[in-house]
Design a protein around this nucleic acid. Structure first.
Length: 494
RNA sequence: GGCCCUAUCGUCUAACGGUUAGGACAUCGGCUUUUCAAGCCGGUAAUCCGGGUUCGAUUCCCGGUAGGGUCACCA
């Protein structure tokens, strides 16, 4: 009997010990994709059996992270399902039942030692440079388990286990991987090693996806399935995600970021979904930007690579830009507004109207790789809301061919001509095109650098800014002329 | 240390014995140009090393090297 002809059931089973990082999320994502691709079921299960490590608010955080990415679960917290509850701490009686079953079959016994005694044995083994195996210290006489002592698994068949992994192929591990590990802790909670197996059996999970770190303990799991006379699921082991600097596994301790931090930094959920899916997997052709539906359609767990991948921020930025280009105008405005709250609050003069006009300009900046938070913090957007104080007059002459002698007066007269030209335009038809049409011939005549640069600087007060014609349109005729007049004044006074 | 896993441009990867070893990000150069960019075009850049197997190995096998994982009353 195999799982291959059954309905596919996958699960994501995080422990609430902190935030979700890219490694966690990718595991969830692959499990989700696999279930969706085959019309199966995706379960979310919370593995909160370690009460000491539990971090307040983690469950909410996990749920929020998954929801942000659009990873939906068919069974689990919030949605229920036929295997409720989906929180392990609420399933204690189920684990006890399975534990009793193992005791009856002679596959479990209470640990008679204290923690200190076990630790001593472990240390001694270490000093003697040999592996510590609890099964070499089994008590000669087994007590009755009263629930106050740890309950240990009793491996009865010590053998070499061989199994097939959907990603890694045929794997095997020797008998040194098998031992009498703890099933139920002295506090009454099951260990992960036991609880996840019971739940996977109970919930009918057919495919288990998890990180590389579990390969070594797979024989242990297999021995429990044997003892329980249950069919183990199919395993798909995922390689680790490495930090972008070194070759270290990207774990929480190595600076892995909370996935929701990416959201706060302006990454779209579509970007993270796509990017994470491609970290260790690809469809086998040259496509890189794939929608959720395409990912579901084309995902194939057997195409997942075996070696760890470094998380590359630059490529993530590129992909985010690609997605930013695709979202509709209204969403772009919303996206930008979420970042510019401070600026727009402090500059009430122009308010939401100008924000609307700014969307294409800011988006263009973002496409070119500029960080919107940086733009705001460095005041690169301020000039849209407030006339600049153009004091660094060297910038007026940045690409100027004006002779040094009397240059201030010369430039001032140029700008005065520009004011005249702009003044002739109708206020209602003051667009980047009409402005350009009005100024261009004069700029060609004088020299583009001598007109366009000073105008840009007069309007923005910045060396780097959007096109001066666009600036003029956004600011409007009155404000545009007023700012150029201000520049003329400054030049006259120099 | 025992056991296990991995190894293609700087990075993510494609090529399931026969390719000028392909693509993407980054990088470099050109075009465009009113700044910075973007865009378009082009370039540099890789099969860890050593043995086999084979007419032929990136690909299969063995050894080495390097990296990673794991040996809890954590998951």
């Amino acid at each position: 009997m195999t799982h291959s002809n059954k309905k596919i059931i996958t699960r994501f089973a995080p422990s609430p010990t902190g935030f979700m990082h890219v490694g966690n999320v990718r595991t969830a994502l692959y499990s989700y994709l696999m279930a969706r691709k085959h019309g199966g079921t995706f379960i979310l299960r919370i593995e909160d059996t370690d009460k000491e490590r539990e971090v307040e608010g983690s469950i909410t955080h996990i749920i929020e992270s998954l929801q942000w990415l659009g990873i939906t679960w068919d069974e689990g917290p919030g949605v229920g399902g036929s295997h409720e509850p989906y929180i392990q701490s609420e399933r204690l009686d189920i684990y006890k039942k399975y534990a009793q079953k193992l005791i009856q079959k002679g596959c479990a016994y209470p640990d008679p030692y204290t923690e200190e005694e076990v630790e001593k044995m472990r240390q001694k083994a270490e000093e003697e440079k040999r592996p510590f195996l609890f099964r070499e210290h089994r008590p000669t006489q087994e007590d009755v388990w009263d629930g106050t002592r740890p309950l240990r698994f009793k491996v009865n068949t010590i053998k070499r286990y061989e199994w097939h992994d959907l990603v890694y192929g045929d794997l095997s591990a020797g008998e040194e991987a098998l031992d009498d590990f703890v099933l139920i802790k002295s506090d009454g909670y099951p260990t992960y090693n036991f609880a996840h197996i019971v739940d996977d059996i109970e919930m009918g999970v057919t495919h288990v996806m998890r990180g590389q770190e579990f390969i070594a303990s797979t024989p242990k799991f297999l021995s429990v399935y044997d003892a329980l006379e249950a069919l183990p699921p199919l395993f798909a082991t995922l390689p680790h995600i490495m930090a972008s600097d070194g070759k270290k596994k990207l774990g929480k301790r190595d600076g892995a970021k909370d996935i929701l931090e990416y959201r706060n930094e302006g990454y779209l959920p579509e970007t993270m979904f796509n990017f994470l899916a491609f970290l260790g997997w690809n469809p086998g052709d040259d496509r890189e930007i794939l929608s959720k539906d395409e990912l579901i359609r084309d995902f194939d767990i057997t195409r997942v690579g075996k070696s760890g991948a470094q998380f590359n921020d630059e490529k993530l930025n590129w992909m985010n830009r690609e997605y930013l280009k695709k979202i509709p105008y209204e969403e772009q405005e919303e996206y930008i507004a979420s970042f510019l709250q401070d600026t727009t609050k402090n500059m009430p003069t122009y308010g939401p109207t100008i924000l609307h006009a700014l969307v294409p300009i800011i988006m263009e900046r973002i496409y070119t790789g500029q960080d919107i938070r940086m733009m705001e913090q460095s005041g690169d957007l301020e000039y849209f809301f407030k006339a600049p104080t153009t004091t660094k007059d060297s910038l007026f002459f940045k690409s100027s061919k004006i002779p040094t002698e009397g240059k201030y007066a010369t430039l001032a007269s140029y700008l005065e001509e520009v004011i005249v030209l702009l003044g002739k335009l109708s206020q209602d038809n003051f667009t980047k095109d009409t402005v350009k049409e009005a100024v261009w011939p004069y700029a060609e005549q004088i020299g583009r650098g001598d007109i366009l640069w000073p105008v840009r600087y007069a309007l923005s007060g910045k060396e780097k800014s959007p096109d001066p014609f666009i600036l003029a349109e956004v600011l409007g005729q009155k404000e545009t002329i007023s700012r150029i007049e201000l520049a003329v004044q400054i030049l006259r006074n120099s």
